[in-house]
Amino acid sequence: MESSNDQKNGDMEAVPLFGYELMRDILLPEILGKHTTDILYWGGKSLARRFPLVSLEETEAFFLEAGWGKLTLADDKKDEQIFILSGPFVERRLSLKTDISFKMEAGFLAEQVQSKKKAVTEAAEEIHKRSKTVKIIVRTDPKDKIE
């Protein structure tokens, strides 16, 4: 029999994946309907404003702790970053029969980069079921500055 200490990962209780999937991939789309992806994207941007991160390492750690997957910076150009999201959680979500989006993660990354570059930044995701990864492309418009 496992003790409550055995069920903990550090100081954090493990959240059952099935419960997360029920909320994120089944219930939210049911409630939000055709607006799901837009709302999740802007929700991700809102979360990034609440959790400003200063480094790539902090962002990678945030993704792991949030249960969003392993985030890796694959390419870093002046106005474009390409991130790869992978790992068991991403693989499991991609194997579901429902339509899966990673818009919240894309919005989160867009806002994190925008806050650093002080220019309008947007992100899009590409789902690669064959490699069981998600590519998130973050593009900044250096001509469109923000305060």
Rank of each mutant, 00 (worst) to 15 (best):
M1P: 02
M1A: 07
E2N: 06
E2I: 06
S4P: 01
S4W: 07
N5L: 15
Q7M: 12
Q7F: 11
K8T: 05
D11K: 05
D11L: 05
E13R: 09
V15G: 02
V15W: 03
L17N: 08
F18Q: 10
E21M: 10
E21K: 03
L22E: 12
M23S: 07
M23Q: 11
R24F: 06
R24Q: 14
R24C: 04
R24H: 09
D25L: 13
D25F: 11
D25T: 07
L28E: 13
E30G: 04
E30M: 09
G33R: 05
T36H: 11
T36A: 12
D38F: 08
D38G: 06
L40D: 12
W42N: 13
W42L: 06
G43C: 07
L47M: 15
L47Y: 04
A48T: 12
R49K: 14
F51M: 14
L53R: 10
L53W: 08
L53A: 09
L53N: 08
L53Q: 09
V54L: 15
S55M: 11
L56R: 10
E57T: 13
E57R: 08
E58S: 10
E60D: 03
E60K: 07
F62H: 04
F62C: 02
F63S: 09
F63E: 04
F63I: 04
L64E: 08
L64A: 08
E65Q: 01
A66G: 00
A66N: 01
G67L: 04
W68F: 08
G69M: 05
K70C: 08
L71S: 03
L73N: 10
A74E: 15
D76Q: 12
K77P: 00
D79N: 08
E80I: 00
E80R: 06
E80T: 05
E80G: 01
E80P: 01
L85I: 09
L85F: 10
L85N: 10
P88V: 04
V90T: 15
V90H: 15
E91C: 03
R92T: 04
R92W: 03
R92S: 11
L94K: 07
L96P: 02
K97R: 00
D99F: 12
D99N: 13
I100H: 10
F102K: 10
M104V: 09
E105I: 04
A106Q: 09
A106Y: 14
F108L: 15
L109R: 04
A110F: 03
E111C: 15
E111D: 15
V113A: 04
S115A: 14
K117C: 01
K118N: 03
V120Q: 04
V120I: 11
T121F: 00
T121S: 02
A123I: 06
A123H: 05
E125V: 05
I127T: 10
R130W: 02
S131V: 05
S131H: 07
S131W: 05
T133N: 13
V134G: 07
I137K: 14
R139V: 09
T140P: 00
T140K: 00
T140L: 00
T140H: 00
P142T: 01
P142Q: 01
K143V: 02
D144G: 00
D144T: 01
I146D: 00
